[in-house]
Amino acid sequence: MRKLINVTLLPLLILTIISCGEDDQVSSREFPKLNTLEVSNITANGATFNAEFSFRGDFEITSYGFVWSRFTKDFTLDNSDKVIIHQNINTPNFSLDVSSALEEDKTYYVRSFVTTDEFIVYGQAKEFVSLGSNAPQIDNVSPLSIFYGDTVSIFGANFSFAKDNNQVKFGGVSAEVTSATDTLLHVLLPELIQSENSTLSVSVAGNVSESAETLNFIGPEITSLSKTEVVYGDTVEIFGNHFGYHEGLNSVKIAE
Rank of each mutant, 00 (worst) to 15 (best):
M1T: 08
R2F: 07
I5E: 00
N6C: 04
V7M: 15
L9H: 06
L15M: 15
I18Q: 07
V26D: 14
E30P: 08
P32N: 11
N35H: 14
N45I: 04
T48A: 04
T48I: 09
F49D: 02
F49R: 00
F49P: 00
F49N: 00
N50F: 03
E52M: 15
F53T: 03
S54R: 09
R56P: 04
F59G: 03
E60C: 14
E60Q: 15
R70G: 13
R70H: 07
R70Q: 05
L77N: 12
L77S: 07
K82S: 15
K82M: 15
V83E: 04
V83R: 10
I84G: 08
H86W: 12
Q87K: 15
P92K: 14
P92A: 09
N93Y: 06
F94D: 11
S95M: 06
L96D: 11
A101D: 14
D105Y: 05
V110N: 06
R111L: 10
S112M: 01
S112P: 00
F113K: 05
F113N: 09
F113Q: 05
V114F: 09
T116F: 11
F119R: 06
I120E: 09
I120Y: 15
Y122G: 00
S133K: 01
P136N: 05
Q137T: 09
S142G: 06
L144M: 13
S145M: 14
F147M: 04
F147T: 15
Y148R: 15
G149T: 02
G149W: 00
D150M: 06
T151G: 03
V152K: 08
V152A: 09
I154P: 01
F155G: 02
S160L: 06
F161S: 12
A162G: 10
Q167V: 04
K169G: 02
K169N: 10
G172T: 01
A180S: 14
D182L: 03
V187W: 13
L189S: 00
P190Y: 09
Q194P: 01
S195A: 04
S195K: 07
S198A: 03
L200H: 03
L200T: 01
S201A: 02
N207K: 14
L215N: 07
F217R: 13
G219C: 07
I222K: 03
L225G: 10
L225Q: 12
E229G: 00
E229F: 11
V231P: 00
G233P: 05
G233W: 14
F239R: 11
N241E: 13
H242D: 02
Y245R: 14
E247T: 12
G248V: 11
I254F: 15
